[in-house]
Simulated scan of single mutants.
Amino acid sequence: MLPHLHLLFWLSLLPFVTGWMGENHFQTMPVDDYGVVLLMCAVAYSILARSLFAHHSENAALAEAIGKDRKGWISIVLYILGIGLSLLHPLLGFGIYICVAIMWLIPDSRIESRLKH
């Protein structure tokens, strides 16, 4: 499967699970499934980024700046944690999903510093 289609598939499910979660007032199953879709989006993004860097050597500076994609791996781990916590209490899992979103709002200075040179 092409990596960009893999990511687009999971992104296309976000409106459905978001609406389902809202209609059911953050019950366990919709919040859990929301986390699964977010997790799969993160995994698909990671696969897409790695395949782009492998096929486009002219982006070596960007690939070097991103490095091991610490934020990406932390996101995946937190989504897994959020899925597990949502089975205990849906708002715990949803809180983890919000933390991941906030984490991505903070710009990554490594990329800017590497690409300026």
Rank of each mutant, 00 (worst) to 15 (best):
M1S: 04
M1D: 04
P3V: 00
P3F: 00
H6D: 05
H6R: 14
L7D: 06
L8R: 02
F9L: 15
F9T: 13
F9M: 14
W10M: 15
L11F: 09
L11G: 12
S12Q: 07
L13V: 07
L13C: 08
L13E: 04
L14V: 15
L14D: 09
L14N: 11
L14Q: 10
P15F: 01
P15I: 00
G19S: 04
W20C: 14
M21K: 04
N24T: 06
N24C: 06
N24M: 10
H25C: 05
H25D: 10
H25R: 08
F26D: 14
Q27L: 12
Q27V: 08
Q27F: 14
T28M: 07
T28R: 12
T28Q: 14
T28K: 15
M29V: 08
M29P: 02
P30V: 01
V31K: 09
V31D: 11
V31M: 05
G35E: 02
V36T: 05
V36Y: 03
L38P: 14
L38K: 14
L38V: 12
L39R: 00
A42H: 04
A42M: 06
V43C: 05
S46L: 03
L48Y: 02
A49S: 07
A49I: 08
A49Y: 03
R50P: 00
R50G: 07
L52P: 15
L52K: 10
L52H: 15
L52G: 10
L52D: 07
F53M: 12
F53L: 11
H56E: 08
N59W: 10
A60M: 13
A63I: 13
A63N: 04
E64M: 06
E64D: 11
E64W: 04
I66C: 03
I66W: 01
G67M: 00
K68H: 08
K68T: 10
K68V: 07
D69N: 15
D69C: 08
D69A: 11
R70G: 14
R70S: 10
K71C: 02
G72F: 05
G72K: 15
W73I: 14
S75V: 01
S75C: 02
I76K: 03
I76T: 09
Y79G: 00
I80V: 06
I80E: 03
L81T: 14
G82T: 06
I83W: 05
I83E: 06
I83K: 09
I83D: 06
G84Y: 01
L85G: 12
L85N: 06
L85W: 07
L88I: 15
L88P: 07
H89T: 13
H89V: 15
P90G: 08
P90F: 12
G93K: 11
F94K: 03
I98N: 09
I98Q: 10
I98P: 15
I102C: 10
M103V: 01
L105G: 04
I106V: 03
I106Q: 02
P107T: 01
P107S: 01
P107N: 01
D108W: 01
R110V: 08
R110L: 10
R110Q: 09
E112W: 07
E112M: 11
E112L: 09
S113L: 14
S113K: 15
R114F: 13
L115W: 10
L115T: 15
L115N: 13
K116R: 09
K116F: 13
K116G: 07
